[in-house]
Amino acid sequence: MLEHGGGILRAAEQYGIAVENWLDLSTGLNPQGWPVPPISPRSWQRLPEQDDGLEQAAADYYGSPLLLPVAGSQPAIQLLPTLRPPCRVGMLPLCYAEHPWHWEQHGHQLSRHAPEDIEAAVDTLDVLLLCHPNNPTGTTFSHAQLQDWRTRLASRGGWLIIDEAFMDATPQHSLLSDVGLPGLIVLRSVGKFFGLAGARVGFVFAWPALLQQLAEAIGPWSINGPAREVVKLALQDSSWQQAMREQLAADSQRLQQLLNRHWLAPAGGSCLFQWLQGAHCPALFDFLASQGILVRQFADGPSLRFGLPPDEAGWQRLETALSQWEKP
């Protein structure tokens, strides 16, 4: 399996620091996640049912009924490459690693393109897959640019796949309003913004025939009953969502400013993380880990992704550690 953030148990063993003494900034999840209420016994005792209101809550929240609930984005990431014969697939040089892994595993020809090079390359591709904003660089594209690429791909039967896992904090930049147009596939997840990664719930948005293919491949009861109940309630909580968007914007700016004060200017970021790039990153990762602070390390680059601290104590702990860091 590929490596992901959140490996606290392994870090605790490697650095000899007890699990409860770590500050985990490695996942990019909202540390102030949606407050989960008690779950009804019915959710545990019956098979999940599609008429429980989850699909309607998702359609209302995302603004499109052309959706399929899935167990996080992962099933779609693994299955989409199986729905096309081997073809030419373009992605950014650094992106969520599960995407390139599964397209290559199914015989597709993968090419990597810097953001400024996609325009020249798109007519050579059958599929363009972008995380938007990109994980971990935070790269974004204009709506007009993405729609132009979708139109050109769709004219040849191609796809534009947009993974919007980090889009909830800035929904005005989403492509969900265009779902239903030929060739457009959008992936969403409640793991990041809502902080409900353990629920394993996501949604695929696309044209009906593709959603039917995915549904048949996944099979029944892909999302357990308690998760369906929790996510339905979270999607309906518009007051919490608005307040959280404002808080995350402020916290992201605070993290950016903190890093800048210590001569660690981010090369990119989003409302849920900041991204550093440079030769000093491996040493900084090791130093922070020795202080019980875990960030996400990427070998390509090299680079680091910093998530948001969960509370004031976490902010002060990160500030103290960075003040002790001596950049090589």
Rank of each mutant, 00 (worst) to 15 (best):
P208M: 02
N260L: 14
D126L: 01
G138M: 15
T139P: 03
E312R: 12
F203L: 06
A121I: 13
R228M: 14
E104G: 12
E326V: 13
I161S: 11
L255H: 09
R228V: 03
R254Y: 03
Q78G: 05
W44V: 06
A71I: 13
L318A: 02
E319G: 02
P41K: 00
R42V: 05
P226A: 00
G219D: 04
S64M: 07
E312W: 11
D178N: 10
A58R: 07
T151K: 14
E49K: 12
L125F: 15
V295K: 09
L2W: 15
H280F: 11
F287L: 13
P81H: 10
G278V: 01
R42P: 00
N135C: 08
G157R: 14
L264R: 10
L68W: 06
G5A: 03
L23Q: 00
W101K: 05
P38L: 12
A154N: 13
V89Y: 04
P85S: 05
A209K: 00
L294H: 11
R10Y: 12
H108P: 04
L214V: 06
I293S: 07
H262M: 04
D117P: 00
A243D: 15
D24F: 05
L79A: 00
A299P: 03
G225C: 05
A283G: 03
S43A: 15
A18C: 03
G157S: 11
A217M: 13
Q109V: 08
D123N: 08
R88S: 02
G268M: 13
S189M: 01
P208V: 14
G183V: 13
R156L: 12
P85D: 05
I185M: 06
A227L: 12
C87A: 09
A209S: 07
N260K: 11
E55A: 09
L272K: 07
R305V: 06
S323R: 14
G90R: 15
P266S: 08
D178Q: 11
I223W: 00
D60W: 00
R84A: 15
D117A: 11
Q241G: 05
L9G: 06
H143T: 04
V127Q: 07
P182N: 05
E216L: 14
G33T: 09
D60N: 11
I77V: 08
L92K: 02
W275Q: 03
S270Q: 15
D24V: 01
G183Q: 01
V231K: 01
W101N: 08
F166A: 09
L184H: 09
F194E: 12
L214Q: 08
G219Y: 06
L79P: 00
D51K: 00
P48G: 04
W103N: 09
A12I: 14
L211E: 00
G292F: 10
Q50R: 08
D60E: 13
A206T: 01
L66S: 06
P133G: 04
N135R: 02
V70Y: 07
S303L: 02
P93I: 07
P69V: 03
S73Q: 02
V295H: 14
Q145T: 10
F306S: 11
P41A: 09
R296W: 13
D126M: 07
A197M: 10
S290K: 12
A12M: 10
N135I: 08
W275F: 10
R188D: 03
E229C: 04
L80Q: 04
R317Q: 05
V201F: 08
G138Q: 01
Q274H: 10
F203Q: 03
